[in-house]
Design a protein around this nucleic acid. Structure first.
Lengths: 331, 331
DNA sequence: GAATACACTGTAATCGTTAACAATTCACTT
DNA sequence: AAGTGAATTGTTAACGATTACAGTGTATTC
């Protein structure tokens, strides 16, 4: 393995000069820099990042932590996240991936091991981890889940606005009896999405019917159960907004079971645009949560934070988009 | 940040002794070791891995490379892979994740940066990368895709056997007019799965009908197209084996479009058991490819390879399992 | 009671890099 | 021709660990 000293020898300079030349120091004369760069390239020099890290105290690694590695749901999250992050990260940074639940002792999470940390959060159970990271002072960005704490950089989708737009669309298609299957109680995302639903209804002066608000918990099964309840109503709704796609899939299955055809007899709207939304039958109309964009923006914010540690934490919202497919009928 | 020298100072020993004590050297007396360990714990000592790496020439990081980071398909692969790997990897190893297509120059892939590399391969376009890794001598295990080269550690599913068993099952349900939608031409997995299909048909003395062999390319669209062709046959098959789940989903959609009900009029069988297989309507009967198990076993082999570099490369097969759901009718 | 062996601990060099500080070179002034 | 300051380059000491080698102390042997 060749080192800067090897290069120094053939270039006839000191290894310090080589170091400086290769790191773009303005101190070095152009001709020597060019010569050294040429030689380094010829010798296929690759810097030893451990030595670099040892002295600069930067690890050149960013850690991505996500809620659970063992729970089955929402797997496409992770791929999209990695996609977005890779786009924003330059090649001599390493991205390491961990499940938060796999971290047995927080002691291993140390500034010397991570230049920065991204948390793809899905539940407030992550808070203990998040505060540990914050406490020991590693630059941190939390993605996907809206935080109450304004002291932490946070990038999320604008759920409320996204849902409002989607419901506006459903209303514009002529539906006025709208129901909602709500998300898991206590989750910020649940209330945000519900708010967006209400925003639209109120804006359109649609009277609120308490029968049309039913509880779910983001699981397929809860979507099935909730939809069954709605279908058994004396006057079932014309359209149902499901607070996530999983529940929409459950709801669709409930419709099949009750011989109700979608969207002819009832319209369905999801949220997330998971990969499978395109494959349901009929294909699900839904609100796309741009995980890749969120991750990319979050990574950029993290890099910003690395360069200027005193950057003020903010809460950034990424716009969602409505994906019109086949589950909302036009009347 | 506290170092072994700090510990040495309070313990009244040299830092060498601390290093030895903390690394389980047999040279150290039990009482000193205990004392040092106690002090280290009290001081919340965490070793500096960069310093360690610099001198031991081990990086404590394993790289996971997968074919493409930007292609949309088979996302659950990655999560399952990370799951399996995390299980087998002890906590002071870091797992870094990269798309092979994101690697702009191979020069960055260096022994000093990776103790070992896992490649989750999906196409033979990965070969250039694989051989680069092999050439520079980084311990390597290729997962998921069967290699011709016996010089590389390789862990894959036993596709052929898995398909044979699945078709045996379909036959046992009373179907005898069996069709196959084949995978992408030139792919090892395509021929393996086809072989499994043939194995079963031959074992059951079912005559081969050339109309029932149609080409696909693993995409949903190709599944749709292939199924349309089969349905337009004067005598459509009773059951169709799709060489992966994506094509099965396409095929199912084709059935819907042709008003053919699954499984009443035609049975469908997939391969992979992607996450969505459970959510299709009806839920897809398929052959489960145990990605997590493959990854876990692969990781164990890699660790073996790290400990004993002269371990003979082998090709390991992990058994698939048939997941019976609702798309194969019982006659 | 000295020699020897063994068990344990310490000294100092090393890994490949950066960076504070010192030294040299060079082009201008005067 | 010497002085000055700026522009380059070099010397050397870190960074935090491991490890070859040297040293100490104690028990065993004769």
């Amino acid at each position: 393995m060749i080192t800067i000293k090897d290069i120094a020898r053939v270039a006839g300079v000191s290894h310090t000069t080589v170091s400086r030349a290769l790191n773009g120091s303005p101190l070095i004369k152009k001709v020597t820099r060019d010569k050294i760069e040429r030689i380094a390239a010829e010798m296929n020099y690759v810097p030893n990042y451990n030595a670099k890290s040892l002295v600069t105290k930067r690890s050149f690694t960013i850690g991505l932590f996500f809620s659970s590695i063992d729970q089955g749901t929402s797997s496409s999250f992770l791929v999209d996240a990695i996609k977005g992050i890779s786009h924003a990260l330059d090649e001599n940074y390493n991205l390491t991936v961990h499940g938060i639940d796999g971290v047995r002792n927080f002691g291993n999470i140390q500034p010397q091991r991570f230049d920065g940390i991204l948390v793809m959060s899905q539940s407030d159970e992550d808070n203990a981890f998040i505060y540990h990271v914050k406490t020991i002072g590693i630059p941190l960005v939390v993605l996907n889940r809206q935080l109450e704490d304004p002291g932490i950089m946070n990038v999320v989708a604008n759920d409320r606005e996204g849902v409002r737009e989607a419901i506006d669309y459903v209303v514009s298609q002529g539906h006025r009896q709208l129901a909602i299957i709500e998300g898991k109680p206590g989750f910020k995302s649940s209330t945000e999405r519900k708010q967006g639903f209400l925003d639209s209804l109120i804006a359109h002066r649609i009277p609120l019917n308490s029968d049309y608000f039913v509880q779910g918990d983001y699981s397929i099964e809860s979507g099935y159960a909730a939809m069954s309840r709605l279908l058994s109503l004396p006057e079932p709704p014309a359209a149902v907004f499901c607070s996530n796609d999983d529940m929409a899939i459950g709801a669709m299955n409930a419709c099949y079971a009750h011989k109700i055809s979608v969207p002819q007899q009832i319209s369905l709207l999801g949220f997330d645009d998971i990969m499978f939304a395109r494959y349901t039958n009929p294909a699900l109309t839904t609100v796309r949560k741009p995980i890749a964009d969120i991750s990319e923006l979050g990574t950029k914010m993290l890099i910003q934070l690395l360069l200027q540690p005193d950057t003020k934490p903010q809460q950034l919202f990424v716009k969602t988009s409505l994906v019109v497919r086949d589950t909302v009928a036009d009347r």
